[in-house]
Nucleic acid binder design. Structure first.
Lengths: 241, 241
DNA sequence: CGCCCTCTTGAATTAAGTCAAATAATGTGG
DNA sequence: CCACATTATTTGACTTAATTCAAGAGGGCG
């Protein structure tokens, strides 16, 4: 019955079962350490499309690892208008912005049925003292997020519309590939509006660009299903103004 | 001679002498802890205008706390064009982007004579294990940087040109105030070009806007010296498209 | 003192936005 | 499961904010 024992061990250690743990917080930890991390993580029922992981202004208590599905983070301005910050995929952490000031500064909403692991932050920090490398890894993840924001900033402020959209598609493609999916063909969970909003463009512009990319033989677009036909041409569009 | 003892203690503890340590990494630490932090920090000779703190692509070894002066961070694209990410003031940390991947991902250059404290990162992490709150504080600083990047993103991608410039001026004003300087009157160390570049605008546009703000009685502008005449009007310009 | 670089200003151009309307998807209650 | 209401996407025509191009003014530094 040793297989039974192994199974029980595995059932306990949900992180190691998880398809994307290599992209997530447990990355680089030993089996034993993952076990400890596992103990503090709460797994919530799946969120339905439109349900929030957390909302701006709520007390910060935990960061969330996205296990499946996808999430959009956004802020609302004084006039109640939404501004999309970015899209998260399985393995990504959301809520890191809430650490400073102990309040979430943005909101995170499920774009499709999604499940998240809740990681209470004080417990995570406690654990960081015991587990070699955990704090460091968290800091690395945050450093990466800072890099990515710099990249998005450079993109948004100085690239023409077509280059911005091409860049988003290329980034999505890479992220799908990292997660073991096809880099050439994937499903966008966000609306045209969300994409336009994040890029600082009008929906109409994004729509026209999708049409144009298709006419130029760069993409094949069927509603939210995207197929990259000519990755070289796509990359060639990505340029500064 | 107790005053002499105190002085020697103070000479050793450069951080506590430093006018901006409350905005910097030592924030929230005890005197004793600051002392330990002090021990690992290297203080380099002042950088002259145009000298680099670090360059993109160099091995990551340390983060830098800006002690005096100001620094611009930027990236170069494939074609060698510069893209300004942001401006740093005393108390700010630069180089956090290098943690992930162990390479600096952007460059940081002095905009005027500036001095920085070099904080070797592996030693800082070691110290984090001993000093209660140090790791947490670093994580908070990074969280704040993520928040700020989100803010800049929202700004750059969806605000009209005048709102972007107004926002930068307001942010600068707040940051001067935090550092004990006048919120109403200050000197910009960066060029019009740098401001335009960061905001994704043409230099000409920024120049015209400065003129316009002056005509509207919002600012008084004399080259790089800015005086805010009507902070309410300035704030009123900050809006989404 | 004069050259160079930054900044400013004006005129013409253009990329992207707005407005309007048709079409396609999605969801909802009966 | 269908019919209708609602929302998302696409397309076209027109407008505009901001850019580009061109040229002149001002400052700072060697």
């Amino acid at each position: 019955m040793s297989s039974q024992v192994v199974n029980l061990r595995k059932i306990h250690n949900v992180c190691e079962q998880c398809g994307i743990y290599r992209l997530c917080l447990p990355m680089g930890l030993t089996s034993r350490d993952i076990d400890q991390l596992d103990d503090i993580i709460k797994r919530s029922r799946p969120l339905k499309k439109g349900e929030h992981v957390y909302r701006a202004g709520e007390d910060f208590g935990a960061i969330y690892a996205l296990r499946s599905g996808s999430v959009k983070s956004y802020i609302l301005n004084e006039r109640g208008e939404e501004h999309v910050i970015g899209f998260k995929m399985p393995g990504d952490l959301v809520g890191l912005n809430g650490i400073n000031g102990n309040l979430y500064q943005n909101s995170a909403v499920a774009l499709e049925t999604s499940s998240v692991c809740e990681i209470p932050f004080t417990q995570l920090e406690e654990l960081g003292k015991e587990i070699q490398g955990l704090s460091h890894h968290l800091i690395e993840i945050m450093s990466k997020e800072i890099q990515e924001e710099h990249h998005k900033m450079a993109m948004c402020s100085k690239m023409p519309a077509d280059a911005r959209l091409a860049s988003v598609i290329q980034t999505m493609s890479k992220r799908f590939e990292e997660r073991g999916f096809s880099a050439a063909e994937f499903h966008l969970s966000m609306s045209r509006n969300d994409i336009a909003n994040m890029l600082g463009l009008a929906v109409e512009t994004v729509s026209r660009l999708f049409t144009q990319f298709q006419e130029q033989g760069i993409l094949s677009v069927d509603r939210k299903h995207i197929r990259i036909i000519d990755a070289k041409k796509l990359a060639g569009l990505i340029r500064m103004d």
